Each structure stands twice: as C-alpha cells, then as structure tokens.
Simulated assay, not measured.
Amino acid sequence: MDEIRFHKSSYCTDAHGCVEMGAARDAVQVRDSKEADGPRLTFGRNEWSTFVTQVKASGLPA
C-alpha cells in the first residue's frame, strides 16, 4: 500500500488519545494515535464516504 500521511481531527487535544485517518489511492486507514505502529482498520473509499455521510447526517461532529 502507498505511504499514508495520517491526520488527527481538529477536535483532538494532546491530553487525550485520538483516532487518526489516512487516505491512500484505494483505501482509508484508521489508527490509534497512541499506537502509530499498531493495528489499523482499512476501509474502501466508498465505505468511508458512506460512514462520513451518516455521521454528518446524525448531527454528531465529524
């Protein structure tokens, strides 16, 4: 898989562990910021897009 640059949410503070996401050409990966070399969840771009759309529709912060 391509080298992925991970990003934290703007809602994240250094005082708490955060979830980071990174996008590659064909997939999106999610990891725990406290364990950058730990396990990652991988989602297809369509699945990630559906997830983000549903979070936004729910009124929860994205």
Score class of each variant (00 low, 15 high):
Ala15Thr: 11
Ala15Gly: 09
Ala15Arg: 06
His16Met: 10
Gly17Tyr: 12
Gly17Gln: 15
Cys18Asn: 10
Val19Met: 08
Val19Glu: 13
Glu20Asp: 11
Met21Pro: 00
Met21Phe: 14
Met21Asp: 02
Met21Ile: 15
Met21Val: 15
Met21Trp: 15
Gly22Asn: 11
Gly22Glu: 14
Ala24Ile: 12
Ala24Gln: 09
Arg25Val: 03
Asp26Ile: 02
Ala27Trp: 01
Val28Thr: 12
Val28Pro: 00
Gln29Ile: 04
Val30Ala: 05
Val30Ile: 14
Val30Met: 14
Val30Gln: 11
Val30Cys: 08
Arg31Glu: 04
Arg31Gln: 07
Arg31Ala: 03
Asp32Gly: 06
Asp32Asn: 13
Ser33Leu: 07
Lys34Glu: 11
Glu35Met: 12
Glu35Leu: 09
Glu35Trp: 05
Glu35Lys: 15
Glu35Ile: 05
Ala36Gly: 10
Ala36Trp: 08
Asp37Thr: 09
Gly38Met: 08
Leu41Asn: 08
Thr42Cys: 09
Phe43Asn: 02
Gly44Ser: 12
Arg45His: 13
Arg45Leu: 15
Arg45Phe: 02
Arg45Ile: 14
Arg45Asn: 12
Arg45Cys: 07
Asn46Arg: 10
Glu47Met: 09
Glu47Leu: 05
Trp48His: 00
Trp48Cys: 01
Trp48Glu: 02
Trp48Ser: 01
Ser49Glu: 08
Ser49Asn: 09
Phe51Gly: 03
Phe51Pro: 00
Phe51Asp: 04
Val52Ser: 00
Val52Gln: 01
Thr53Asn: 06
Thr53Ile: 05
Gln54Val: 03
